[in-house]
Design a protein around this nucleic acid. Structure first.
Lengths: 104, 104
DNA sequence: ATAATATGTGAAAATAATTTCACATATGGT
DNA sequence: ACCATATGTGAAATTATTTTCACATATTAT
């Protein structure tokens, strides 16, 4: 009945929104995100985990780095729509609208 | 820098989303909302307060009832866009995008 | 004026989310 | 092999949110 509050909850956090904003520019490793955001590394790690669980971001190992990027669909939406809210709308509709809530 | 997490936070709650969904149909008094949602009355009251603080809803005294409705702009968006996310997007952009966060 | 109904609200109690920190693992360089 | 760097993770400590409940106020009816 109310499937999308989890997606909103993931976005109800300044750090996580700032991560999305940063990743709009380009993929980044955790350490760099941490530096740019001036936030403790493990805090960023935890934040990324939640964003990943909600399919906002994905990660790829490159050597000792884990490079995070917006998921393909989110990234595509960013290109087409430019605006974080359009992106989120589409995303939430895609992943969070069915009974099973945000897929994990 | 990150002005909209508060709007998301208000939506990061199943009851509050359900209230918005209900009010899409028509304005309602607190008691009726409470009954329809099968939720405790004061819980609904608290939820409505937050929705009001973020300009999602407004209320009007009618006798001993307090009739809540979606704010004019949200309601209008509902008519035009039909979809809760479009509505929220527009709303958030209108009220939550500037430095001062969601106006109270 | 009294009683019943509708609602709001503060604050304590209960829950949930975030932050922090110590530790685990993995990779790359020497 | 050893060390440094990069990252993940569980869990305790901290902080925030939600729930509940008792009480306050307002309106209407009798």
């Amino acid at each position: 009945m109310v499937p999308y509050d989890r997606c909103f909850r993931t976005l109800a956090n300044p750090l996580r929104i700032r991560i999305i904003e940063l990743l709009k520019k380009r993929p980044m490793a955790v350490g760099e995100l941490s530096k740019q955001l001036n936030a403790e590394r493990s805090k960023v790690s935890h934040a990324l985990k939640k964003l990943k669980e909600c399919n906002f971001v994905e990660s790829e190992r490159r050597g000792k780095y884990n490079i995070y990027s917006l998921t393909k669909s989110v990234l595509n939406d960013v290109k087409v729509k430019g605006n974080i809210f359009d992106v989120i709308k589409t995303h939430v509709e895609k992943y969070c609208k069915n009974k099973r809530r945000c897929r994990v």
